[in-house]
């Protein structure tokens, strides 16, 4: 019983890491119907920026986090300008490949700037590094911070989409880009805003997660692929779906590791996803859009 509780809890905390990545992916996909394959690298790069400010220059944590968020936004907007706006009418494979090109550039740049500073750069945690006991279960406070962070971001965005003008415009663009244009929405701006926002979430995620994950130039891809999987599992356009998807993957991995063998951790999520998609081709919470002939 204790084993199960621990496994569920660790699944929940790892899952919240994936959920944070998935949220950014979903925000971009919701408006633009593409996946930014550079999302993991945007995450990595913003994390290094936070590290540079906080660890190297001694800037306090909160301004460093905000700087990572702002920097992430700019990088995201730049991704839109370079690899999305000029290609809106291109086919989706070109779009995907363009973002992969951006990913390579970011990874190479990070390796040039930070690659010689150590194999895995540590980032001091914001909370106490000592594990604490909650109801007989030991947890690391930073993990709770990440979990809280992903819930806060999810709720904030749900409110943003429902309550603010910009959010409603993003929603409208997502639902029907043509109609949105007719209604006077400048959809190019909305696309840029979405790319920027998605990357800003990645920036926040990086600053929150770095103490747990350490920083290294190649960290982006493994997070991206788990985040992408979580987003697809949740239905690609649903924010609660992203969180649910991320946590499901975390828990699947944890249970597979605890009850089968640790060699099944990495592959378990992918097997489950292959089956889920065959049964529900649009993920758990995805809406089926009508296909026009």
């Amino acid at each position: 019983m204790e084993l199960l509780v621990y496994l569920l809890l660790s699944g929940l905390t790892t899952g919240s890491l994936y959920a944070l990545i998935a949220l950014g992916i979903v925000v971009v996909n919701k408006a633009t119907a593409v996946i930014n394959f550079a999302h993991g690298e945007l995450f990595m790069f913003s994390g290094f920026v936070a590290w540079m400010l906080h660890v190297q220059m001694g800037v306090p944590y909160l301004p460093s986090l905000l700087a990572a968020v702002a920097f992430g936004f700019l990088l995201g907007a730049a991704t839109d300008l370079i690899a999305f706006r000029p290609l809106k009418n291109a086919n989706i494979i070109s779009l995907v490949l363009a973002t992969i090109g951006i990913a390579f550039m970011l990874r190479g740049t990070a390796r040039v700037i930070w690659g010689g500073k150590g194999d895995y750069l540590p980032f001091p945690p914001i909370t106490s590094p000592e594990p604490i006991m909650i109801g007989g279960i030991m947890v690391i406070p930073q993990q709770l911070a990440v979990l809280a962070g992903s819930i806060v971001i999810m709720v904030a965005f749900a409110a943003f989409f429902r309550l603010t003008r910009a959010g409603k415009m993003m929603q409208a663009t997502a639902d029907n880009a043509k109609a949105a244009t007719l209604a006077g929405i400048r959809i190019d701006r909305i696309y840029m805003l979405s790319f920027g926002t998605g990357a800003a979430i990645a920036g926040a995620a990086a600053a929150l997660m770095a103490p747990l994950t350490l920083l290294y130039p190649d960290m982006g891809f493994s997070f991206f692929i788990k985040g992408f999987a979580a987003a697809v599992l949740g239905g690609l356009t649903s924010l609660p779906g992203a969180v649910l998807g991320g946590i499901s993957i975390g828990i699947i991995e944890s249970l597979a590791g605890g009850y089968l063998h640790s060699s099944f951790i990495e592959v378990s999520a992918f097997i489950v996803i292959m089956f889920v998609l065959v049964v529900r081709p649009t993920g758990l919470l995805g809406s089926t859009r009508f296909r026009r002939v």
Binding site: L17, G257, S262
Partner: peptide
């Protein structure tokens, strides 16, 4: 005989098995 992936972010399952 346990395993971990190079990018793993959690080792709870492995630690619990080893402890057990």
């Amino acid at each position: 005989d346990e395993e971990m992936a190079p990018d793993a972010n959690d080792a709870t399952a492995q630690v619990l098995r080893l402890k057990g």
